[in-house]
């Protein structure tokens, strides 16, 4: 267990540094965009007087440094602030004079949705790509492997939005098998949720499979060509035993690591796919709040997405370490 701590502790320190940097960069970038939440909300109805009143109300009249410091000091204490724009649902009333929605209430349900979608995609593509990776590596001298590899490369080469729109046109619009909109917050049954999630998850899975297959394949090919696999073969072990006990355990470590790292791409892809299928996830929220320049929401969403990536990285390293006796026992 000591090695796990040795692995985790320095990374946690780095992760905190990275998150601070990300919040700073995000804040600066939003500041650099033309206009602010007030101009976005008022739009054509803007007059200098109205803008002044709104700006005071939103605290936007203070200098950026002060606003960032204020946001940061509250954020680390767990207070993520309120949206500049979104109003609290009427039913909740307005205790303490607060009128706007708490950022945390907006962000967490969306993160949950995004993670459900990403999880569904993972569930689809991890077993598929492990299987395809193993098949293409083991039967590399067979002709069908070349076709399979070509197909996989095609899947990777076509961007998510093309795959998504194609699936949408075929399975939702023409065949009517799945709903075109993935509004899972309005779903009435679990079955309906799964139905709504299938096309977006499939889009992500197709895009991700290519990368993951090649990771698994590359990792296994290296191992299959290794001295120890040849030695195991020439000891007279059966092919199955060589593959299952000598090759796969040593190929899985690097493959799992890279596959978990591919969650980075997955999160990037999720944003696109959420837009295509109007899916109420964190990506959509990020996009909507960017449109309104709703800084507190943007910051919170960015921090959450970054945390997911950092966590995936850490998990990848830990998994790989546990699968490698060299790291486990020293």
């Amino acid at each position: 267990m000591r090695f796990a701590l040795r692995l985790i502790l320095p990374r946690v320190g780095l992760a905190i540094l990275a998150l601070v940097a990300i919040s700073l960069i995000t804040f600066t970038l939003v500041e650099l965009l033309p206009g602010d939440a007030v101009t976005r909300v008022l739009g054509r109805n803007a007059t200098p007087e109205r803008e002044k009143v709104w700006r005071e109300r939103m605290n936007l009249d203070r200098p950026p440094v002060v606003r960032y410091t204020l946001w940061f000091s509250r954020f680390v204490r767990g207070d993520w602030g309120e949206s500049l724009v979104s109003a609290r649902p009427a039913t909740e009333g307005a205790p303490g004079g607060r009128r706007n929605r708490a950022v945390a209430d907006m962000v967490w349900p969306r993160l949950k949705n995004t993670l459900i979608l990403a999880g569904y995609a993972l569930l689809l593509y991890i077993p598929t790509s492990l299987f395809l990776g193993i098949i293409t590596a083991v039967f590399r001298e067979q002709r069908f492997t070349a076709w399979l590899s070509a197909l996989v490369v095609l899947g990777t080469a076509v961007p998510e939005y093309v795959i998504g729109i194609l699936l949408l046109l075929i399975f939702a619009i023409t065949l009517n098998w799945f709903p075109p909109l993935a509004l899972i917050d309005q779903a009435e049954s679990t079955l309906e949720v799964v139905q709504m999630l299938t096309l977006p998850a499939l889009t992500l899975a197709i895009a991700m499979t290519g990368i993951a297959v090649r990771m698994m394949q590359g990792s296994l090919l290296t191992v299959l060509d290794s001295d120890y696999v040849r030695f195991a073969t020439l000891k007279g072990l059966s092919r199955r035993r060589v593959l299952l006990l000598h090759a796969l355990p040593n190929a899985l470590g690097p493959a799992v690591r890279v596959t978990v790292l591919s969650i980075v791409w997955l999160i990037g892809g999720v944003v696109l796919v959420e837009v295509i299928f109007t899916f109420p996830g964190l990506g959509m929220l990020l996009l909507d709040s960017l449109r309104l320049l709703d800084t507190p929401v943007i910051l919170a969403a960015a921090m959450l997405l970054s945390s997911v990536l950092i966590f995936a990285n850490l998990a990848a390293d830990l998994l790989a370490a546990f699968l490698n006796p060299r790291l486990r026992t020293d």
Binding site: L234, N250, L323
Partner: peptide
């Protein structure tokens, strides 16, 4: 293989399976 004809390879460090 192994039973009748046996290979002792070049590099012992890479001959044995690391995970076993």
């Amino acid at each position: 293989r192994g039973a009748e004809i046996f290979l002792v390879p070049q590099n012992p460090a890479s001959t044995l399976t690391p995970s076993m």
